[in-house]
Design a binder for these strands. Structure first.
Length: 300
DNA sequence: CGACCGTACAGTTTCTTGAT
DNA sequence: ATCAAGAAACTGTACGGTCG
């Protein structure tokens, strides 16, 4: 049986005949003519290689094959109707759904706990999965339905993606407490003299700190470059290195925080989603929840 | 005889394919 | 990517056959 050749409408006709016990009555229910029902039944008979209904007097009696099929057929039809209905409505209290995110450690640590806590109250049957994915695969993963949201601190332009800024933060310098070089605070000379941990997903290239320094004709001393913000504190506490982190993350550690001795643009956080999901009610609802939890995610 | 199913045929719609 | 032509599929009308 070639599933690609199956007309799913045939099962709606099958259900109507089974319920009505008559092709004529089924035709009335379906608002088509009796021959159309007869023809649909003929195609279904050929497809399933069974008469499905036999004439007994003035009614059509289902065969054993039809009796076996009716329950799963009705379940499938109900599922289809439910799916179509849910694409136009969304009830978070009853919805059973999973959203896939691709967020870096920083955003996972800051957004996910609040988001999950919020979902526990508003949408108890909605779950979240966060996993790493290369930027180059984001669009194809979204198009395939394997990824719902991608969040990042940099802009990402693609005609297939929608974008919304959901938060911003300021960068601060982080160092161990009682750092011998920072007894009098952090000035530009000290900032440039100390070794730095630079967090970047790229192997090389300038970040916002380096760009700001470059405008002043300065350059910092990069001692370590890593992918994850969360490895920074454990390195800092053992060394005299410093690092520049978003304030809302830096404040969680028992380390010394210093304002940067020069102007740096704030870090902006964006969420991205596929254009095909832009009008999906469940997706729209989740975007609202992200914006809601991110409203507390501001520099202090 | 009335009710209902199945078939033939024709018109319409949808899909496929090839050209641009 | 778009358009047009042909093929295929679907549906409705008319009508014949079957059953109670």
């Amino acid at each position: 049986m070639n599933l690609n050749r199956i007309d799913l409408n045939l099962f709606a006709v099958f259900d109507a005949i089974y319920t009505a016990g008559s092709l004529t009555k089924a035709a009335d229910v379906l608002c088509i003519t009796q021959p159309a029902v007869s023809n649909s039944l003929a195609r279904l008979r050929e497809m399933l290689n069974d008469p499905l209904f036999v004439r007994t007097g003035h009614s059509m009696t289902p065969t054993p094959v039809a009796q076996n099929i009716i329950v799963p057929a009705r379940q499938a039809l109900a599922l289809l109707r439910k799916s179509v209905q849910e694409s136009h409505t969304f009830d978070p209290l009853t919805a059973e759904k999973s959203f896939n995110f691709a967020s870096r450690d920083l955003l996972e640590a800051s957004i996910m706990p609040r988001l999950v806590a919020r979902l526990q109250n508003l949408a108890p049957n909605i779950s979240i999965t966060n996993y790493e994915i290369p930027r180059s695969q984001v669009v194809s993963a979204m198009a395939a339905g394997a990824l719902d949201f991608f969040t990042d601190a940099s802009t990402f332009t693609d005609p297939h993606l929608c974008k919304q800024k959901f938060a911003q933060d300021r960068l601060v310098a982080l160092a161990r407490k009682n750092h011998p070089a920072l007894k009098n605070g952090l000035d530009l000379d000290t900032f440039l003299r100390l070794g730095h941990i630079n967090v970047s997903q790229r192997k090389s290239g300038a970040g916002p700190i380096d760009i700001a320094l470059d405008k002043m004709g300065k350059r910092r001393k990069e001692v370590m470059r890593g992918q994850h913000f969360l490895t920074v504190p454990s390195t800092i506490v053992k060394t005299d290195l410093i690092a520049c982190l978003p304030f809302h993350l830096a404040k969680h550690y028992d380390l010394a925080i210093y304002e940067l001795p020069f102007e740096v643009p704030p870090v902006e956080y964006f969420m991205y989603w596929h254009v095909s999901a832009d009008h999906d009610y469940a997706h729209m609802w989740m975007r609202e929840q992200i914006m809601e939890v991110a409203s507390n995610f501001k520099p202090h």
